[in-house]
């Protein structure tokens, strides 16, 4: 495998890791606040559709992004309503949201575009274009550093950079701000937050809303940057891989980034090579597909360090003495 191939694989790793990372950070906010969210997939899917649909109709990818975020926020609000206001089962709510998105996107796509549940292909201003860094062209000839700069780092859409900047931002918010302190506290012991005079409901809705925004960006990235338009079920389990990455990262921002890059790499390798021949032993592509899930199970099993979720996670908060 030559250097350029390697660069290309890493390049596609970054592209593929981006939606995972955005969704993973989305889940991080929600779960750190004590709201389990297995509906990341649905929110991404919803946003993927609406961003592509609005971008296709208006020709503006930014309007598309806004529409995507709004639709994802709507589902996040529904999750909040079920799991915060009505203290329902967060897992069941997540399941419902995934199905709601899977059904509604196709239903509306069919109604609006009559193309069998897809949007028209996006082009021009309706897509996020790659951003070339200064001197990328000029430096591409320089050995080693050149390709890294011009191929690997430069030339991604703005959403990719947003996703990776969101990692230090999330770390900073979580550990250096009042909001972060309260957010972490409400996921560990909501009663402590409540008796300290801070609204548990407000905090949790805020966390769920941030989750909605990030899922919205993730979905929009899928439909308007990674690909050019929406197709049925286009998230293809990415929401669950993001969830897996979150567990893998033990709910910590920097670790989340590395986990998403790892899973992105697996996807990139599977995309490029199909079956991998390791000197006689052929690893089928399906094994690569399954690897993120297998790794997550191994982590969950606690064989490689125990993944302990936020203590109050999954439990609706009921005031008691």
């Amino acid at each position: 495998m030559d250097f350029l191939t390697l660069i290309q694989i890493f390049d596609s790793t970054i592209r593929l890791a981006t939606p995972l990372l955005l969704a993973c950070l989305a889940g991080l906010y929600s779960e750190r606040a004590g709201i389990f969210d297995i509906g990341l997939e649905g929110k991404m899917l919803m946003s993927a559709f609406f961003s592509a649909a609005v971008a296709a109709v208006t020709g503006s990818v930014w309007l598309g992004l806004l529409a995507g975020i709004a639709s994802s926020l709507l589902l996040a609000g529904l999750h909040g309503l079920a799991s915060i206001t009505f203290r329902g089962n967060q897992l069941i709510s997540g399941v419902a949201i995934n199905f709601l998105a899977a059904g509604m996107t196709v239903l509306i796509a069919q109604d609006w575009f009559q193309q069998g549940g897809r949007t028209p292909s996006l082009f021009g201003g309706a897509r996020f274009e790659p951003i070339d860094w200064p001197f990328a062209e000029a430096l591409s000839g320089v050995p080693v550093v050149g390709p890294i700069y011009s191929e690997l780092l430069s030339g991604h859409s703005v959403l990719v950079y947003i996703a990776f900047l969101a990692v230090p931002a999330t770390w900073w918010v979580l550990y250096r701000t009042r909001f972060g302190l309260r957010l972490r506290a409400v996921g560990e012991n909501p009663a402590a937050v409540d008796t300290a005079g801070v609204s548990v409901v407000g905090l949790r809705y805020a966390a769920v809303a941030i989750c909605g925004v990030l899922c919205g960006i993730a979905g929009a990235y899928l439909a308007t940057a990674l690909q050019a338009g929406f197709v049925k079920d286009m998230t293809a389990g990415r929401g669950f891989i993001a969830l897996a990455a979150l567990i893998f990262a033990k709910w910590r921002p920097w670790h989340a980034m590395w986990a998403c890059l790892l899973f992105g790499l697996l996807q990139a390798v599977a995309l490029r090579f199909q079956n991998i021949d390791l000197g006689g032993v052929v690893i089928p592509v399906q094994a690569m597909d399954a690897l993120p899930y297998i790794l997550t199970v191994v982590i969950l099993a606690g064989f490689v360090g125990k993944a302990i979720p936020p203590k109050a996670g999954g439990e609706p908060y009921v005031k008691e003495r």
Binding site: T177, R178, A185, A192
Partner: peptide, 13 residues
Amino acid sequence: ENIVLGAEDGGLL
């Protein structure tokens, strides 16, 4: 952190 929680001064910790 427990003492400060809910009685912070300003947005930064």
